[in-house]
Design a protein around this nucleic acid. Sequence first.
DNA 1: CCTCGGGGTGAATCATGGTTCATCGGTTTG
DNA 2: CAAACCGATGAACCATGATTCACCCCGAGG
Lengths: 221, 221
Amino acid sequence: MPYRRTESVVRRLAARKESIVSAALSIAGEGGIGAVQIAPIAARADIAAGTVYRYFPGKTELLTALIAMAEERELAALRRAADAAPGPLSALAAAIVTFAARAQQHRRLAYALIAEPVDAGIEAIRCRFRQSLVEEFAARIETAAANGLLPQQDATLAAPALVGALVEGLVGPLAPDFSGDAGKARAAIQELALAALRGLGVPDARARGLVVQTPFPWVKE
Amino acid sequence: MPYRRTESVVRRLAARKESIVSAALSIAGEGGIGAVQIAPIAARADIAAGTVYRYFPGKTELLTALIAMAEERELAALRRAADAAPGPLSALAAAIVTFAARAQQHRRLAYALIAEPVDAGIEAIRCRFRQSLVEEFAARIETAAANGLLPQQDATLAAPALVGALVEGLVGPLAPDFSGDAGKARAAIQELALAALRGLGVPDARARGLVVQTPFPWVKE
DNA sequence: CCTCGGGGTGAATCATGGTTCATCGGTTTG
DNA sequence: CAAACCGATGAACCATGATTCACCCCGAGG
């Protein structure tokens, strides 16, 4: 009778695959995308370098899995925050604040996943992540505009600019250093979110209570 | 008597150094930072690979020279446009529009010099360029705010966000494709500039004539 | 128990791209 | 014009890091 994988073996394999991706993710969060190399990943996952290739055809696919994992998590958080808001405009505001807060909380990882220098092949993969984010924001902008809560505008232009401003302002290499002062960090998020909303055509977001204090209860993960 | 370089030799050497940097710059403009490699540069400059090392101790220094050249050019253009404006606020607006217009005109190069993935060592160099840009904008923002033309705000937060929004909105990988439609490109610049100014606290830039049609006569190079 | 086959191993291999250096050829000097 | 020397050359070298593969090891099936 031919060899059949035991149920427990199947579980072990799946768990190991998962642990490889987790190892990669944690390394990315510490040392950036450049530090995501096969040998360190294998070491952290307590396996040999060659074993990685029993689970992924190549580094590209591993990175793809890594980004997919992060993407899922981030989009879910974004949607949870937005959908809990009472209307399209506050949903947009909540998405902005949530994105900013989470990005800042995992600054290194956010930078690695969105803006950090990598080589071309990997950039292509990462683009899909950014694309998802941008589309999420674009959809929220369009909905708000359709409801007359924002001036009509080109969301395909505004959404990338919005993401660019948030990333560059909070986690980019030139952003001010907020480490060690949570209050300052929170204030920066508020200020940026207000500026972003002004840019989108909401001059009085604060007065209208659109930008609430972070962290939201539902931002935690 | 020891060997002394002839005047003509000195000129030839200087010209060659210059031509190496130019070759590197043109390659960056075509293929991005990743394509800036010693062998192709040497080929384009019509010299051997080893010769590059007679002019630069290493690739890092060559890249530094490349970026310095671009930085000089860009900052000069920015300042020329801004200084020709009639006041601090219109100077800021002019700087924004000029930056956007130039970045879009040399989209590939702008991306390479500001946002494109590269490895860590090079990123450090490139940061200085972005830093210069951000500082230029920050100074303009502060001046305008000091004159009561903008609400008081943290320019060290606003300036990076501004640059991020412009870059991501116009030249980033997710920006809409403007090639082949100059009108659309121009409209995008206008819209982005207006949004940026709204974000900074100028709700009616268009009505106040702050964002004039590009290209400015003085934007040309 | 034995043996079979798949998972695991990690040293070896390959690919890429920066850097070096022994050597060549044209200039400068006396 | 010959000697001395500098700048140019480009093949060889080196470093990094992904990928492979011949060889183990262990548990399932008989």
